[in-house]
Write a protein that binds this DNA or RNA. Structure first.
Lengths: 336, 336
DNA sequence: TTGTAGGCGTTATCAC
DNA sequence: GTGATAACGCCTACAA
């Protein structure tokens, strides 16, 4: 399966040199502009290149330069608008910086060592989402000298970290809900799902405690629409409804919206509802979702630039960037 | 500036050989399992590898084997659920086949020659979306012997093509609308935007003509939500409303939904509305969107496998796969 | 079973 | 200015 030798054209620098009647060193010089070449020779080489449609091999170049001009990003999954938007921001910044982009999805499982090392050997640096590569493996990568940026999780020794602020928004959300009379707060979440999700829950609890309000009820529920639809359905079937159902992310809130429809519960009249992320659908659904806007593209973009700084050596010390988020009040919370 | 930091670890096969007291050929053998090695030697090599935490360099390997075990996919843009879903399907299939994934977005412009060639020199094959690389460049890539699959556009000599069927669905959609009494059909589209979009328009026209129905009114409008919101707003402001507004894609339909709200037009009572693609939001909005389901993941997945077949030589001749689509009737068309 | 040596396509350091 | 030539890290006949 490996061979099946499809031999590709492969015009090499030797053929160009040959055609132009010069040495490969000279060809390399005009290609890189690394030293003066007589105008005449220069011209001949250029012609040979054009005639032979020569493109230098990235492989040879990378081997000689010991750099790939490429970096990778590892996702836990590719499903949904969140990761897509992060990728969009990442790709944009990376290509701006002249680096190719390799992606890998671990499909919601910890990536195996082999796969990660393979990827690592193709790039100059790696961005790792939370829930993709375990701590020990990250440490090993860092130890090998590979520039690493972790995304959506707390810092790791020797690696940069980029996260979105969850605490400030959790606080703002709680303030808003409390100020408008909501008392019984139920939360759809799974604090163990990821670092981000845990921070949101912790932030909610802390904010509530800070105001001397009764603690929220945690309804443990996987971070996806279907699970949320079920869990919310259970809540909506109760005799005593909570004032508000706070969801750990928008896809859960979207599922809850469907559950409300099923149960003939009016949002926000019977129960208020909030999400988190501000995905595109949040503003299209009715009632439009009150949510917390995450700077998804910026997360990706910042990860790319941080990685680049580390690769080029522009920055030596690790940083932890916390990007600001914003409470977006629409109609689902009932207090527009 | 410590060259320990700049220069990455770089444990080479030589160091392993050295430590195990064997030649690099032997190390390579145990690594690849390409020939018998005495159990004793085998053991020593394995230990050396472990102790040195050696990982073979993809570069050296790729250069020697003249294969990257990676392939690339080029998108016109990364925005929105359509491309994300295709990518998801692509990544899944490609990683299943043991190939790394390189992505490139041309940001809605034709990719320049240099960028494409650079990407091409990093991979064993390329998937090219419509509207990313011009015909001449595709021909050149094919001519160089690079396996190429075009996605969402008609076939190119020497390359595989994968598309979703647009004609059958256009026909089904027209049948459905006509059968339920809709006569005045307005279409929000921009036939020049892409091959896919043109096919949809052509298919609509053909189906209408086939039924002897009056032709649809084309309202030219860019393929995005904001443009559609404006254009639909204009339509909804008319004295005489069409029976149905058919949009070339769901994001346009979503924009039209907002325009209807702005204009206090009831969908589907005053005007029926349809989309195309069946993105996730289509089922969440109210009224839920009648649309055409595109097998987005399968498009990506099939492109990946087709490319792999070509790369490994499992298939010699080019194919054009047309994936089936499906009319999804919800409530926005008013004839549920 | 194991080692030697040439090759893969560049870059870069020497001499000339 | 240019041309040999040694890396770069690996694979693989060909020998031993």
């Amino acid at each position: 399966m490996t061979d099946a030798g499809v031999r590709r054209s492969g015009v090499t620098i030797y053929q160009v040199a040959n055609r132009a009647g010069v040495s490969i060193a000279t060809v390399s010089r005009v290609l890189r502009g690394t030293a003066r070449v007589s105008p005449d020779t220069h011209q001949r080489v250029l012609e040979a290149i054009k005639e032979l449609r020569y493109t230098p091999s990235r492989l040879g170049r990378a081997l000689a330069e010991r750099r790939h001009a490429a970096n990778g990003i590892v996702f836990p999954e590719l499903f949904g608008p969140y990761y897509s938007e992060v990728l969009l921001g990442y790709e944009e910044a990376a290509s701006e910086l002249g680096r190719s982009v390799l992606i890998l999805s671990t499909h919601m499982a910890a990536a195996d060592r082999e796969t990660v090392l393979d990827l690592a050997s193709r790039v100059d640096g790696l961005v790792l989402f939370d829930q993709t590569v375990d701590e020990a493996m990250i440490a090993e990568l860092v130890d090998r000298g590979l520039p690493v940026v972790v995304l959506g999780r707390g810092p790791v020794e020797g690696a940069d970290a980029v996260t979105a602020d969850n605490l400030v928004s959790a606080h703002a959300l709680v303030e808003h809900l409390l100020d408008h009379g909501h008392r019984r707060i139920a939360v759809l979440s799974d604090p163990n799902a990821s670092s981000d999700i845990r921070e949101r829950w912790d932030g909610l609890c802390a904010a509530l405690a800070g105001r001397g309000a009764p603690p929220a009820e945690l309804i443990t529920c996987a971070i996806d629409e279907d699970a949320a639809r079920l869990a919310a359905g259970e809540v909506f079937g109760r005799d005593e409804l909570p004032d508000v159902l706070v969801c750990a992310c928008d896809s859960q809130a979207l599922g809850a919206l469907l559950a409300a429809e099923d149960a003939r519960i009016s949002i926000p009249d019977d129960v208020a509802l909030t999400g988190w992320d501000d995905v595109m659908a949040a503003k299209y659904v009715r009632p439009a979702l009150t949510t917390v806007r995450q700077p998804m593209r910026e997360l990706g973009g910042r990860a790319a630039t941080a990685l680049d700084e580390r690769i080029t050596g522009a920055r030596e010390t690790a940083v932890h960037d916390v990007l600001p988020t914003e409470l977006v009040i629409r109609t689902s919370c009932g207090v527009h």
